[in-house]
């Protein structure tokens, strides 16, 4: 990846999965700050179903690495109380699809604590969760729901596309005084049993570094079209950009990295240069990230050489059977085809 931080941070020879990057970031921050603790289902002995807390129980003990009952309302509510009391809880809730059982604690409690207290009480907590499908787990374990959370005031929403960013974003998220929803995509996580986009496994400095929340990265420079993605869809966009190059088109690819805050200026600056825009998202289409990005560009009055487009999951539940699921999920072929309709109308 060629994000600015990757270029400026000290290089290291090792390569990390996003899972390793997250657990390393949490462990380093737990060493640095005694107020940090981790709670969630299967985050102790198991080390997290998606590897985000590997090794932490052994290192920090059961007081600071707490397996919880399957009681999301209670333990996410408890995280809000911990945060209000000066602790910095990191809470894992396995799948974003499960948030329905505890939304009140997230969008009524955590998200409004600063506002309703007039800034007297803050809510420094990280709520990390897996997102995304593509592996036949059907519609209650495959959603991304980015826009659902990006829509709610008071929450920050972070989605890394690679291990370098995952570590730096996690360190930034833990230190942020606000509730941060940290969404890691299962197709990028580096779990052997899930399959992983190899490009997400990157080098990352062993030491302390922060990737700021709300700063997009230009991960490939280009001049003819701007492709905007987040998480997995960054990789679809990069794959498509490589194909488009062979056809004589230069695509710029932007990795949003967070959608709240949303770095509208980086997108606008790119589209001012390219005059063309395609947003790639694997969340449901309507009212989604694509709509928000396109509106941000149009509202800025940026002249476009072709109508902007968006690719997303259609407005249907994520289907189970692979022939259906891969029919509806975005991929590099669909991105390249849509880009060509913009580039060669």
């Amino acid at each position: 990846m060629s994000s600015p931080e990757t270029i400026t941070a000290p290089r290291s020879a090792r390569r990390l999965t996003i899972a390793r990057a997250i657990s390393e970031a949490i462990g380093q921050e737990m060493e640095r700050d005694p107020a940090v603790l981790v709670m969630g289902e299967d985050i102790g002995k198991l080390g997290g179903v998606f590897g985000t807390t590997t090794g932490l129980l052994e290192k920090f003990g059961a007081e600071r690495v707490r397996d919880t009952p399957i009681s999301e309302t209670a333990f996410i509510g408890a995280a809000v109380g911990l945060a209000a009391s000066g602790m910095r809880p990191i809470v894992e809730l396995m799948f974003v699809d499960f948030f329905g059982v505890c939304m009140d604690a997230i969008y009524n409690l955590a998200a409004k604590q600063s506002y309703f207290s007039g800034g007297q009480v803050t809510c420094p907590m990280v709520l990390m969760t897996s997102v995304g499908g593509g592996y036949g787990d059907a519609g209650q374990h495959s959603q991304t729901l980015y826009a659902t959370f990006g829509h709610l005031p008071g929450l920050k929403v972070v989605i890394p596309s690679n291990a370098h960013d995952a570590k730096g974003l996690m360190l930034a998220a833990i230190r942020d005084p606000n509730p941060v929803i940290f969404m890691y995509h299962k197709a990028l996580q580096g779990m052997g049993w899930l399959g992983t986009v190899q490009r997400s496994i990157t080098d990352a400095p062993e030491g302390d570094y922060v990737v700021p929340l709300g700063k997009a990265a230009i991960v490939r420079e280009g001049s003819d079209i701007t492709l905007v993605g987040l998480g997995l869809s960054v990789h679809h966009a990069l794959d498509a950009a490589a194909r488009l190059e062979k056809q004589g088109h230069s695509a710029e690819v932007i990795d949003l990295r967070s959608i709240a805050p949303l770095d509208r200026e980086t997108v606008r600056a790119s589209v001012r240069k390219t005059g063309r825009l395609l947003v790639v998202d694997d969340d449901y289409m309507s009212y989604g990230v694509g709509a928000e990005i396109i509106a941000s560009v149009c509202e800025a009055g940026i002249p476009l050489r072709a109508a902007p487009r968006r690719i997303a999951h259609p407005d249907i539940p994520v289907p189970f059977t692979p022939v259906m699921e891969h029919f509806v999920l975005p991929d590099a072929d669909k991105v390249a085809a849509a880009a060509l309709t913009i580039l060669e109308p």
Partner: peptide, 12 residues
């Protein structure tokens, strides 16, 4: 709604 936060404050 206040029960979870009370558990958290008590844990802190």
């Amino acid at each position: 709604q206040g029960l979870g936060p009370a558990v958290g404050a008590a844990l802190a």
